[in-house]
Write a protein that binds this DNA or RNA. Structure first.
Lengths: 349, 349
DNA sequence: CTGTTAGCGCCTTCAC
DNA sequence: GTGAAGGCGCTAACAG
């Protein structure tokens, strides 16, 4: 029914082994023979059977990219960059790898599920992007999976995610702490002393680290934080809207709001405006990530740029073995404060 | 080295076939036996070998989702919805399917490549999203691939993409024409008579259809179009910026600009503002898609909402055989004009 | 309900 | 440089 490698061999009048060799190109084959085989492949419209190939070779061309939320440009941009480095070439059969992105939706179970599925497929590599969940049992389960993946020859790279020791996984981390410190430092430098914070989900490392940076900046400036000044939410616009509304209800004297990321910041801006306040005259707002839309909201968002595309490209290359892993298996990628119109001096109280 | 199904069988003191049966759950197995097997699986930390399974069963749990640009929220939102319907359950082994998104980057070659890769993996289903390229040879190649995929048991669904006849592929199309007609009609209703258009890539169906709708509206209102009023570009912000700059250079008397989509519209707005013009007092702007950020730009974008999440969910269900395909294999999804602040009456010339 | 028996299609030593 | 043969790990008829 379906045409197999044997059919191609018959038509090209060579052995199946030879066909396999020209297809995989890992072995010397005489030019005329190769020609003949390639022609037969073309004429028969032959397509290699991936599963059979993977079974025999004990490895596949699949590369998995795990993201927390594919609808979020943060992950879209990262995934796009990773994938561009991988989809290119270099696989076993025909020089092609199937880079696929898997959307965990932020759910630990789905994350584990995908990892298992990828392990089951004998993936060539796996790249996990974005913050991790700090829950100990889950972290242990993930660590175990990653270790096992590594043992069975799957290269594991973490991008924008903290390292997982003793798993052989290479990590490219983002300096969330430093970036947050810079953003809050900028606000403090402008004279703000009453800063609200709409943080992300409390269980994610990204949230923890950004919050830590924020607090470090406050502490360094000798500003004592009021517990009412922090609310947690998700990494989306809506959380920003609700968070800021709550914050300003609790303490209308706040003069600035630090948001978990740009999407949240945009929601914060909307809430601030709906309260009849101006940005930045009445309330300054900062974001994080510098996604494309941050330039177009009005006023432009002061934020911390993370070079997502570069980081993703690098992670992709490491996953393909085309770039050396950073020393110690961990490399940190810095953020850069970008000052735009959403921040200014605090209003005279 | 790695633990196989036979190992599990030995430990559970049953035959490999029985283990396979409890794992796939498509066959009656006595409860105590199942228990024993499951325990053995757990104790041995066994993971099914996907390739071997796919080879033997001649089908896999992989479902491919092709997108033109994963960094674009349009595709991210769609993919997320599709994937949520697929990743859930219903696969062969353990009730799980591996929904993966493949980023073609808008390249016809990559599209074909991914289709081949997916065919090679014996994917259970493939969903192609977004506009197609009209180039005849490529269209024929894609049609041939889709037909072949269908023949080998892969379900093919098109989402937001025109039908491909005689391939067995189910299509869910977006009413780009009608939506564009509504947007331009809205502008005409406000009194505009000199409308620029920053279209998308000329070779994409989406561009063609939206442009057709725009022109139909103009024709219906008896407005004759000046050839200088249309420029083509990509579906991104930058194209919008450049396109609008060019348009207003060519004809400064334009009072409105229709953009290919929301990202482009945002770029158009930036260009208009950089020219010292106000929106909508001097120039009205419309987008298309109603992506989340369209609400946050200032003024809010008048646009055509496409229910991406609903469409994606439906496509996902059809791909999984959990929802019936529309009659004739083609279903159209309508768009809805959303009027916000970016459109208003034309300035008095 | 469970065991036995054949392959699924390809890769990879070995010989030549 | 090329052919022959065995097995990768699992599933799918058949029997029983």
């Amino acid at each position: 029914m379906t045409v197999t490698l044997a059919d191609v061999a018959a038509r090209a009048q060579v052995s199946p082994a030879t066909v396999s060799r020209v297809l995989n190109g890992n072995y010397p084959v005489a030019a005329p023979t190769r020609e003949r085989v390639l022609r037969a492949v073309d004429e028969l419209d032959y397509v290699l059977n991936g599963p059979a190939s993977a079974l025999a070779a004990a490895t596949s061309d699949l590369v998995g990219i795990l993201v927390n939320d594919i609808a979020d440009p943060f992950f879209g941009i990262t995934a796009s960059a990773i994938q561009a480095e991988i989809g290119g070439a270099g696989g076993r059969a025909g020089g092609e790898r199937l880079a696929v992105v898997c959307n965990t939706g932020g759910s630990p179970e789905r994350e584990l599920k995908y990892l298992t599925l990828l392990q089951r497929q004998r993936a060539a590599a796996v790249v996990l992007t974005g913050g991790a969940v700090v829950d100990a049992p889950h972290a242990a389960a993930v660590a175990a999976k990653l270790r096992k993946l590594g043992e069975t020859g799957t290269r594991v790279v973490l991008c924008g995610r903290p390292p997982v020791p003793d798993t052989g996984a290479v990590a490219l981390t983002f300096d969330n702490r430093g970036g947050a410190r810079a953003a809050t430092g900028h606000l403090l430098g402008l004279g703000h002393r009453r800063l609200g914070c709409v943080a992300g989900p409390p269980e994610r490392t990204t949230t923890r680290h950004r919050l830590a940076g924020h607090r470090a900046a406050l502490a360094a400036a000798g500003v004592e934080e009021d517990p009412r000044w922090t609310v947690y939410g998700r990494f989306d616009r809506r959380s920003g809207y609700e968070g800021a509304s709550e914050l300003l209800r609790r303490d209308p004297s706040l003069t600035a709001v630090v948001a978990a990321n740009d999407s949240v910041a945009v929601g914060v801006c909307a809430a601030v405006r709906d309260l009849g306040l101006r940005i930045p005259e009445d309330v300054s707002v900062t974001g994080f990530d510098d996604l494309p839309f941050s330039l177009d909201v009005v006023p432009g968002l002061t934020t911390v740029r993370i070079p997502l595309a570069e980081a993703g490209a690098r992670a992709g290359r490491i996953a393909m073995g085309r770039e050396e892993a950073p020393a110690g298996g961990v490399g940190e990628i810095g953020g850069e404060l970008v000052v735009r119109g959403s921040t200014g001096a605090p209003r005279a109280s």
